[in-house]
Design a protein around this nucleic acid. Structure first.
Lengths: 242, 242
DNA sequence: CGAATCGTTGACAGGGTTCAATTTACGTGG
DNA sequence: CCACGTAAATTGAACCCTGTCAACGATTCG
């Protein structure tokens, strides 16, 4: 019933760093169960001190914050392999909420065991920190995008990011991958209005740079799109899996 | 000549978590020297794999990225006690550059010793991770600000943040603290133009909500300013010092 | 079939950018 | 001691990218 870490379907992707048997075992011991959730299900709440943290095993989700003025900022999109609740595990309080966008399967960990896990293996502790630093890195990029890029470049940037992340977990077939989000999610991620997001996506479609419709994203020429995004296509970096 | 960690001038502030003697000793052993830099000096470069990482002992600086289109995004302002180069230490590559804004004194650590430091003490390793998670938390807030707040609210938000951080290291006297940045820095931090930043600061001044001029920031009523910023004033959280 | 959700499109207004010029402060060299 | 150059702050004006408002089409579902 419950996926054995030894048979974890994610580990086969090059994108994730190899693990020693010891690391797999320790992760297995850390894992307390599995959870399946339907689209729209809240997984973690901002400000909460959740007793459980997760790794996305299948499906996609959304990290977001709600501001006092009622507006929503999407902080990131969640893909398979993403660790969910790092802030809760460390600081004891989430800085953002997490919802499932599609049906998801999650590995469940008890927050109470987190410190033990961290202490039990220096390489694993290092991996946790590595992930935190990488997220910080990404958020810096996102900040630069919202702050300094035009709407067209912003959306191009976001689509490139999503496409590349999709490629790391084998979601891309024939230049196209599933992208089950709403335009409103993208708008809220980039600080744009829904209407303008829609029109900008249409422009990219006309220019044949990217076509995102019916939940499918297809990009024929990633480099061209990256040019529009005014970004460098840096080589993908393998990351640890927890 | 070189400040002994036991006599570190930062540790006296409540803002920083207490350290055991063992932690102090291990930090002392990690520390390889001290560095004084003049205003404007580059400390770390984006993309570089610097051999050294730092902690700001005195003075203030700027984290920023330059985009291919030439625009600059300020990622954060550096205050005394801030750890500089976490990404370099962990991932081996900085996601942003760091410059000194004022004259600064820095504790120097060798990146080569970082893993040893991390392995040598679980609590210290945890602290490193904690800092990374906290920075991630902050960047999420910053993202929400740039993405969802008006220019007026954005600048109010930034001033509140800066003021509160200043208060943690005893920079505030009589509702005022030194804030030695240029308006351009603030503009680049919030994704606003210099002109609009200037006019918005003037509005806050007229309304007597915040006065930032001549390198001094004075805020008489932080709550009022926080209201304009559409933000909650959450209690300050103590953080580890490295 | 009606309600709800999401995507699309047009019209219009406005918050913020850009351009440009002026002011102020300050250090430097003659 | 003053002229000059430079950096930063300030102000005005024109413009435009993007937001807001509003309506409509397409799809799904109870």
């Amino acid at each position: 019933m419950i996926t054995d870490c030894n048979a974890c379907p994610l580990r086969k992707y090059d994108f994730f760093q190899d693990m020693t048997q010891d690391e797999v075992d320790k992760t297995q011991r850390f894992k307390s169960g599995e959870l399946s959730v339907d689209p729209g299900t809240p997984i973690l709440m901002e400000g909460s001190n959740a007793p459980q943290i997760y790794t996305a095993l299948r499906g996609m989700g959304l990290r977001y914050k709600i501001l006092p003025n009622g507006r929503r900022q999407v902080v990131n999109f969640i893909f398979p392999g993403d660790f969910i609740g790092l802030q809760a595990g460390l600081i004891g309080e989430m800085g953002h909420s997490v919802d499932a966008t599609t049906h998801m399967k999650l590995c469940v960990f008890d927050r109470a065991d987190f410190f033990e896990f961290f202490r039990g293996s220096v390489p694993r502790a290092f991996d946790v920190t590595w992930l935190a630093a990488r997220e910080e890195h990404f958020l810096g990029d996102a900040l630069a995008t919202i702050g300094q890029r035009s709407a067209l470049a912003s959306i191009a940037w976001a689509l490139v990011q999503l496409f590349r992340r999709g490629s790391t977990v084998d979601m891309v077939r024939n230049d196209t991958m599933p992208l089950p989000y709403r335009q409103q999610d993208m708008a809220d991620a980039l600080g744009l209005s829904l209407v303008h997001t829609n029109k900008t996506l249409a422009r990219l479609r006309e220019r044949q740079l990217a076509n995102w419709s019916d939940g499918l994203l297809t990009i024929r020429d990633l480099k061209k799109l990256a040019d529009v995004a005014e970004m460098e296509l840096e080589p993908l970096r393998r990351r640890p899996l927890i």
